[in-house]
Amino acid sequence: MYPRVNIACGLDIHKSSISAAVYRSDGSFTTHRFSTLLDGLTALREWVVENRCERVLMEATGVFWIPPYTALESSVEVYVVNPLSIKYLPGRKTDTLDAVWLAEIALNGMFKASYIPPRDVREFRELTRTHRKLVEERTAHKNRIHKILERSGIRLSGVLSDIFGKSGLLVITGLIEGKPIEQILATLHDSRILKKRDAIERAICGDLGENEVFIIQQSLESIKHVNAQIAQYEERILRTLARDEESLQIVTSVPGIGFKVGAVILAEIGNIRQFDGPKNLVSWAGLAPTVYESAGKTAHGHITKRGSKYLRTVLIETAQVIANGKPNRLKQFFLRIR
């Protein structure tokens, strides 16, 4: 809930157009349609300022709300709401009527705004989220190679802990180049791997087809390319975190949290002071249990899964690492409440 204002603006945003409405306290309103191109966004900002709007409200529609928000945030108070939290009146529905309804809601302060971090935090989030997507892409290529090898009867993953390590790549490269097993084994020099020489020889007796060799070659090239990109992203993330080393040190002091996970946590949370307490943060991350209450009876279900999926994912992964890792206070707490 927000205080009532005298003039407010509502935006119904689409991919190529924006329906805007200015609603006044006397019940009158003005509407206009703008393009989502740069000149349209500039005209929208000027229109909002000319009409002396005190507040602008828009729905979070995919990524289409970001350009208008960025264009307006320096000129007026801008709020973004989840469409699920807006209840529309029954009857005829048009883009213009939707904009008028949003403007009226904004005028009366009858909405629950989503948290939109400052621009620098949004840009840092883009870095960490893209980094995670690249890691997932690399994993997909590795899984594809695993699948082809297993399907061809090459059980290399049962002998080597990491087939994409130095020795594993030597074996895979030798296989796709059609080298004899003896020649492949002759390229291995790690004493720990040489102890498994007989097991490796039995594991790589399968046969790869021409197309399977091609797919593995392409996947290895893709992994090499993605690895270079990941390294560049990590370097840039590290430079960004250098501005706030204290926060990174605090986050990484928790067992199971390293540089990469810590970067995601800091990027997703932003300013920790936006939350009134720990429970608010847990709820925002979607880790709070669902509550069902009826006739005086209360039941708790699974976690809500609302909020930042990126934060929720890394926190769950960290909890799993702690639960399966070396003994520490957090693991003892987990074992006690399990």
Rank of each mutant, 00 (worst) to 15 (best):
R155A: 09
I230R: 05
E201T: 12
V314K: 09
L102E: 02
I172H: 08
S16D: 15
Y115F: 15
R306G: 02
R138C: 13
H225N: 05
H189C: 12
K309G: 12
H302W: 09
E245M: 03
E201I: 08
I237K: 04
T318F: 05
D98W: 03
K305H: 14
A203H: 01
L37F: 14
S152K: 05
L44G: 13
R273P: 02
I216Y: 07
S222F: 07
Q217M: 07
P327L: 13
E268G: 00
A231G: 02
E50M: 11
K224T: 09
D39M: 05
Q274N: 10
V22P: 08
I13F: 05
K179N: 03
A186T: 08
D39H: 10
V49M: 13
R338L: 14
Q218S: 10
P67H: 08
L335T: 01
I172E: 10
N82V: 11
T139L: 03
V213N: 05
E221G: 08
D12S: 03
M58N: 08
R239A: 09
L107F: 07
A21E: 01
V159D: 00
R45P: 00
R273T: 13
G178R: 09
V22A: 00
Q183F: 06
H302P: 07
L97S: 04
K305A: 13
D95C: 00
T298D: 02
S114M: 15
R243F: 15
P117M: 09
E104F: 01
R192H: 12
H131R: 15
D190A: 12
S17Y: 11
D26Q: 00
N328L: 09
K133A: 14
Q274C: 06
G165H: 07
V314Y: 10
S191K: 14
I337V: 15
D120K: 13
A186R: 06
I86T: 04
L160W: 05
N271E: 13
T30W: 09
K133C: 14
L84S: 13
I303E: 04
E54G: 15
T240V: 11
V264R: 01
T304A: 06
T173F: 03
L72S: 14
L220R: 08
R336P: 01
G165S: 06
D12E: 02
A231V: 04
K297F: 04
G174C: 03
V135R: 10
E77R: 11
S283Y: 00
S167D: 04
V56C: 06
I200M: 14
L281Q: 04
K112G: 06
T36D: 01
V5R: 04
Y69T: 12
G62H: 04
T313V: 08
E104C: 03
T31L: 12
R144C: 11
P278W: 02
T290E: 06
V135T: 12
K326N: 10
L89G: 12
S19D: 15
K309A: 11
I193F: 10
D95N: 05
R312M: 09
I216A: 07
K279S: 15
L57A: 01
L220Y: 09
A288L: 02
Y310Q: 11
L37Y: 12
L335C: 05
L220I: 10
V100N: 00
G209I: 04
K133L: 13
V121F: 10
L44F: 02
F334W: 09
D26N: 13
F259N: 11
V63R: 03
K305L: 08
T96C: 15
N271P: 01
